[in-house]
Simulated scan of single mutants.
Amino acid sequence: MPAVLLFSYGTLQDPAVQMANFGRLLEGTADQLVGFMRSLVEITDPEVVAESGLTHHPIVRASNDPADRIDGTVFRITEDELVAADAYEVDDYRRVSVKLASGLEAWVYIAA
């Protein structure tokens, strides 16, 4: 089964969140999301707050300025783990495919 690439700039990088959602710690490499700006969104889902320990999570929106970059980690995960990540992310997020600074194509969760 081919690996799926997922770029994370937020709580999916947290070992506790990874264990709760994937049952393992993920290995990844540093990369950047180009043309996006980062802010925070309030999380009201009690399960997500319990897993992350945070009431506000990072969220990104397109800025259309290639000088804007978001640091993060690109992980190689399975299709089943991508489904688990979809279930973890609240309705404020939507998953899109992007080209990272490295040239890799990866999924990322951005503002819905």
Rank of each mutant, 00 (worst) to 15 (best):
T73F: 00
V17R: 03
N64T: 06
Y93Q: 03
V96S: 06
V96T: 10
F7P: 03
T78V: 07
T73E: 09
I110V: 15
Y88N: 03
F36V: 04
A30Y: 00
A62C: 11
M1P: 14
A30L: 02
A106S: 13
E47N: 13
A85T: 03
A16G: 00
N64F: 14
L6G: 04
R95M: 11
M19Q: 15
V34R: 08
K99T: 15
F7E: 01
R76F: 00
E105S: 10
Y93A: 05
E42G: 05
A112M: 10
V49Q: 11
A3N: 07
L40Y: 12
L26Q: 03
E79N: 13
V17G: 09
P15A: 10
L12R: 02
S52E: 05
D14M: 13
F7L: 03
D91N: 09
A112S: 15
G53K: 11
R61Q: 14
F22A: 08
L82N: 09
P66R: 11
E81F: 02
E42C: 04
D45Q: 14
R24D: 00
D14F: 12
E51A: 15
D14R: 07
H56D: 11
W107C: 07
T78K: 06
V90G: 05
V17C: 09
V4M: 11
A84H: 12
P46F: 04
E42F: 04
D92Q: 15
V49W: 05
V60H: 06
D31E: 00
A111G: 11
L33K: 03
G10K: 07
A20H: 01
L54R: 15
D92G: 09
S8V: 02
Y88T: 02
G53L: 06
